[in-house]
Design a protein around this nucleic acid. Sequence first.
DNA 1: ATATTCCGCGTTTTTACGTCA
DNA 2: TTTGACGTAAAAACGCGGAAT
Length: 216
Amino acid sequence: MDNFRNNYSCLQLTIAMPGFSSSPSVPSSGESGGGGAMKELDINQVPSSGAEEECMEEEDESPINGGPAPRKKLRLTKEQSRLLEESFRHNQTLNPKQKEILAEQLHLKPRQVEVWFQNRRARSKLKQTEMECEYLKRWFASLKEQNRKLQKEVEELRAMKVGQPNGRVPPPASNLTMCPRCQRVTTTTTAAAATATTNTNMPFHQPRQPSTACYN
DNA sequence: ATATTCCGCGTTTTTACGTCA
DNA sequence: TTTGACGTAAAAACGCGGAAT
């Protein structure tokens, strides 16, 4: 097993290349492997420029009894991953020329570089989605708390209204505000005033709604 | 209209690693 | 303490469909 882990870069891999007709002498790498007009190529037939140092021993992955060869997966070295990440930081997508150059640098097939970038973009998107989900959760919790406070205040005001002989409740002076729209003095509830200050901590900016500020 | 290429997306497969008996 | 079975997360690879050329 350790031997296997140490030599993961030596694995025999196959790759489907569009535009090649399928060869009967090359079995599919899996039951779902290979598209319509595809030819399986050995992607471990790396260019002779220095790639041999990573591949100390050749494993024969020829199919047993003519059956389909098991799909083997290359594990990228740390240096390969580092270079790919660095390249990804500069460009999340590669044009064919960039792909070719990067593949040559890494002693990989262009298809492998392409797949890596596709998977990397997918991981990026997933991470972004997870972050947005967390954001929305926190926002929802915050809105729930606001709503709870407002409900509580409504109950208190109702109770006060019942306690007043004429049913009128004088607003506290600290709650008097000027409506920016009609320039008339209006009142805000204490909870609303409180949340007006806490709104700055909301995950998302909430646009002002002047029409709801004025009930005159 | 057809072929080719590229990419996104969902899925499959392999690998590495942790846990547990 | 070691070992092998098992479960699982991560990632490489695959296949398909759609868009662009």
